[in-house]
Amino acid sequence: MLFEGTVFELNRIILIRILATLVLVTLFWIAASRARLVPNRGQNVAEMALDFVRVNIAEDIIGKDTARRFVPLLTTIFFAVLAANITGVVPGLNIASSSLIGFPLVMAVISFVAFIVVGVKAHGAVGYLRTTLFPSGVPWPVYIILTPIELISTFILRPATLTIRLLVNMVAGHLLLVLCFGATHYLFFEAAGALKAVGAVTLAAGFAFTLFEIFIAALQAYIFTLLSAVYISISQESH
């Protein structure tokens, strides 16, 4: 812990968050300041990453005409979550900075506020509540069951599952890696005789799970952004 006892108290995860943010900002600053009409290799990679969010997430889900307004928000969410997740496999950092509830919660609240604001802007406050809680096209007795379900699923379960999904994925991934490498350490240095050989298996599993964690980090960033886009698109469309 740095600066213990003051208001600037920092633990390891906060330090990693600050570091990940700095790296992310620096990378994009470099990519943006050297932008040319004819891109070089680094700019190509940056453009591919930005284009992935713009085309594969925003335009595919929200629709080509209206997606433009939401591209900055979705891009920010995607790269912030990705940067926070990927620190879990960076040697020396070794823990995803999204594995404390603060980061996923803030991201989920941003997405929550975004889709409510979009809905209210598109239909008005009363109109948004009506299209969300009383979807048209069903006979009225169904509303007795449907309205509470819609209320809970839209305003409680959506942000809650966004938070829990990201948080638990990262915690579980960290535990898996700790188990694999902890077991390797124990088997190599403290186990007797032939058991030492099993350590090779857990070491290989540790490397395999590290690759798996890279995949999960990217997948979770993708899913988080995808769901934000889906929620925005649902509250935008009229019933």
């Binding site: 594969n56 595919d60 889900i61 599952t161 829990i164 999904r165 948080l167 638990v168 994925n169 915690v171 579980a172 993708y222 899913i223 995808l226 769901l227 889906v230």
Partner: peptide, 24 residues
Amino acid sequence: AGLLRTNMFIALAAIEALGLIGFA
């Protein structure tokens, strides 16, 4: 295939949440 894959990921997110709530 592209649309199906996107829909698959949305459904994956919904299914995955159940397992993860068990973990949490």
